[in-house]
Nucleic acid binder design. Structure first.
Lengths: 185, 185
DNA sequence: TATATACTATACAGTTCTGTATACTTTATA
DNA sequence: TATAAAGTATACAGAACTGTATAGTATATA
């Protein structure tokens, strides 16, 4: 992958999070990335394609990071689900955290037929299924039900953190998650 | 208040929810409302002012409806907090529900200095305080902590419902809320 | 009946946005 | 060293957007 393509993706991710997707023009993106529109449109045929790739990379980065953290933490499935919100807290409270792409994108593109909304919805579902896998491996009775509840806490906490940086909401999500996990057996 | 001002507010609320705020032009609004831009700008000096009034009215309608429901349901505070998510479910699963304005608006205007973001953030805080008041009246030990956790479930469930209409997420939020409320005493 | 008010209709200024066309420059490589 | 690929610089078409100017119509009321 090209150095400039990466730079465009990185700058777009940042600007979409801090200014909003529709409010960020490609002229701004190339100016900040230090390149030109011709180069941007060489790598991304349309702005929509750029948005979709930004979302894919963001979610992939998060999932990869989380998976690695959980994998190197413990081999016992029961521990892993308990540690889930500890790592989520670490991710969300990191200074570089600016929000979750799929949550903001789904709000900005509310039509369920829109490709950007569809991808956002898919990423939300995939993360829920990831939690469900953790719950299943931890031999939790109704794993899918717990996973959905935990995903609500996660998305709610991210929403709260996007609303007010440093809200501390994730601390309460963690407390609530522990109660729900412990009560699910 | 004028008939046309109401109509403009009503149409704007609907279009902002279904197409997004930035993606909805005033030309579209007046066309659907059956009026003209001159009339719109007579009642709302800028589009931002219109957005702010739409948010205020939406939240006021929700709060008024919820408060009336809870007030006419039971006089016992312990019952009211248990019924909270039943009424939230009724609201969210109603066919006319298209989303919560302050959640979508805060995503579309992510800058915390933006007046629209500020109002969204304020409304989120006020709703949390409303839950806290219910929890306090129900003599719950750490009412603020529970209220914050319940607000995460609420915002997460709304987010999920906005992502996929008819997701049923609110049912799981209700289940989780019951566990948290019962465990908070 | 005269007058203020509410509203319509429409054109338009000025900006911003996406996407492309065109001509030039730099760099890697065969 | 010749050639292809990558990137720059810039102008521009065409659309969409906010907000205003201007002139006219309908209606209520004094």
């Amino acid at each position: 992958m090209s150095r400039l393509k990466d730079k465009i993706l990185e700058v777009s991710t940042d600007l979409f999070q801090t200014r909003g997707i529709n409010s960020t023009g490609v002229d701004t993106i190339v100016a900040v990335a230090g390149t030109t529109k011709m180069t941007l449109y060489k790598y991304f045929h349309t702005k929509e394609e750029l948005i979709l790739e930004v979302l894919k990379k963001s979610q992939s980065d998060f999932q990869t990071w989380l998976d690695k953290k959980l994998d190197s933490s413990s081999k016992k499935p029961a521990d892993k689900i308990q540690l889930l919100f500890d790592y989520i807290e670490e991710w969300v409270t990191s200074p570089s955290f600016l929000g979750m792409g799929f949550i903001k994108a789904s709000a900005e593109f509310p039509n369920e037929e829109n490709p950007i909304h569809k991808l956002s919805s898919q990423q939300s579902r995939e993360f829920r299924q990831y939690i469900a896998k953790l719950a299943t491996e931890a031999s939790i009775k109704d794993a899918d039900s717990l996973a959905l509840q935990l995903s609500l806490l996660f998305e709610g906490a991210v929403q709260a953190e996007q609303m007010k940086r440093g809200s501390g909401a994730i601390k309460y999500a963690k407390k609530a998650a522990k109660v729900l996990i412990d009560g699910a057996n």
